[in-house]
C-alpha cells in the first residue's frame, strides 16, 4: 500500500517469499506437527473460556476469601519484585560489567532457580530459613522471629523463584548497552556510582521494566515453593494460585473464575512485553 509520498509503510507490509509448496509454502511434514502443537497449547485455554461461569463471575470473585487471596497475591508479588529490583539490578551489573573471578560460576548459581522445581526451592528455603534451618535456627533463638507460614515467607519464596528472571533480563540489557556513554560520563567528571545512576540505568530502563514485569508475573503464579515454605493459611499465605487449587476440590466454578483472572493477568503481561518478545521477526 503506497503512502502519498511514495514510500511504503515501514512495518505493516511484509515481504512475501515465493511459495513453492502449495498456498502456504509450509511442507506437510512440518505443517501437521505444527498444527498439533498449536492445538495442544490453545485448546486448554479455550476450554477455560468455554466452561467459565460468565453469569456468576461477579459474585464468585467478590467473596471475602477470593478478595483476600487476590490482595495477598498482588501485595506479595509486588514486594518480591521490589526486593528483586533492589538487590537484583546491582547483581546484574556485577555479572555484566565486573571483572571478578568466577563470574561464570556465579551466573550459573543465579540461574539455578530458573530450572529448579519450585517445590525443591521451597524445601531448600525451609532448610535455610525454617525454625530449625541453617540461618533460621540462630535467628529464632536470638530474636524469636520465624519465617515459615507467614506472609514474609510467601514474599521470600516468590523472590527466590522470580528474581532470576529479572537478573537475566537486566544483564542482557546491560550487555547490549553502548558502554561508550559511560566513558563519556567519566570524562565529564561522573564517578562510577553517578554514571550508573544517571546514565547506565536510564539507558537500560526498558530492560529493567521488562525484567520487572516478567518477575512480577512469575511471582504472581508461584505455587510450589510457596505452599512448601509458607503453607496455606487463609489471609496470610493463601495466594491466588493456592486458592485455585483448593477451590477445584470444593467449588470448581470459583476455581475457573480465579483461573480466568490469572489468565487475564498473563495476557496483560504479554501485552506489556509485546514489543520485546512478540514483535521479534
Amino acid at each position: 500500500m503506497p503512502s502519498p509520498s511514495g514510500v511504503s509503510a515501514p512495518v505493516s507490509v511484509k515481504q512475501r517469499q515465493p511459495q513453492p509448496d502449495g498456498a502456504t509454502g509450509i511442507p506437510a511434514v512440518l505443517m501437521i506437527p505444527a498444527v498439533l502443537a498449536v492445538g495442544f497449547l490453545v485448546l486448554p485455554l479455550t476450554a477455560l473460556l468455554i466452561r467459565a461461569p460468565w453469569s456468576s463471575l461477579g459474585s464468585l470473585l467478590s467473596t471475602p476469601e477470593v478478595r483476600d487471596a487476590l490482595r495477598l497475591s498482588v501485595v506479595s508479588a509486588s514486594l518480591a519484585t521490589l526486593i528483586s529490583l533492589i538487590v537484583g539490578v546491582p547483581l546484574a551489573w556485577v555479572l555484566a560489567r565486573s571483572q571478578i573471578r568466577g563470574r561464570g560460576v556465579l551466573r550459573a548459581l543465579v540461574t539455578v532457580p530458573l530450572v529448579l522445581p519450585p517445590v525443591v526451592g521451597g524445601v531448600a528455603l525451609l532448610l535455610a530459613l525454617g525454625r530449625r534451618g541453617v540461618l533460621g535456627a540462630p535467628l529464632y533463638d536470638a530474636t524469636g522471629v520465624s519465617f515459615p507460614f507467614t506472609t514474609t515467607a510467601v514474599v521470600l519464596a516468590e523472590t527466590f523463584v522470580a528474581m532470576p528472571f529479572l537478573i537475566i533480563s537486566v544483564e542482557g540489557a546491560l550487555r547490549a548497552a553502548d558502554r561508550r556513554y559511560e566513558d563519556a560520563a567519566a570524562t565529564l567528571g561522573a564517578s562510577r556510582a553517578t554514571t550508573f545512576r544517571r546514565v547506565t540505568l536510564p539507558l537500560v530502563a526498558p530492560g529493567v521494566a521488562a525484567g520487572a514485569v516478567l518477575c512480577w508475573a512469575r511471582a504472581l503464579g508461584e505455587f510450589g515453593a510457596t505452599i512448601t515454605f509458607a503453607g496455606n493459611f487463609p489471609g496470610t499465605t493463601r495466594t491466588m494460585t493456592l486458592q485455585v487449587y483448593l477451590a477445584l476440590e470444593t467449588d470448581p466454578d470459583a476455581a475457573i473464575a480465579l483461573s480466568l483472572v490469572l489468565l487475564a493477568v498473563s495476557i496483560f503481561t504479554l501485552a506489556l512485553l509485546r514489543d520485546r518478545w512478540l514483535m521479534r521477526t
Binding site: 566513558d183 563519556a184 570524562t187 565529564l188 561522573a190 553517578t194 546514565v199 536510564p202
Partner: peptide
C-alpha cells in the same frame, strides 16, 4: 581516574546521552 581529571572530551559520534 577519568572523572577526577580536569578534561573535556568530544567523541567521533558525539555520544550525547539519548535520555
Amino acid at each position: 581516574p577519568p572523572h577526577r581529571r580536569p578534561i573535556g572530551m568530544v567523541f567521533q559520534d558525539h555520544l550525547l546521552f539519548p535520555h
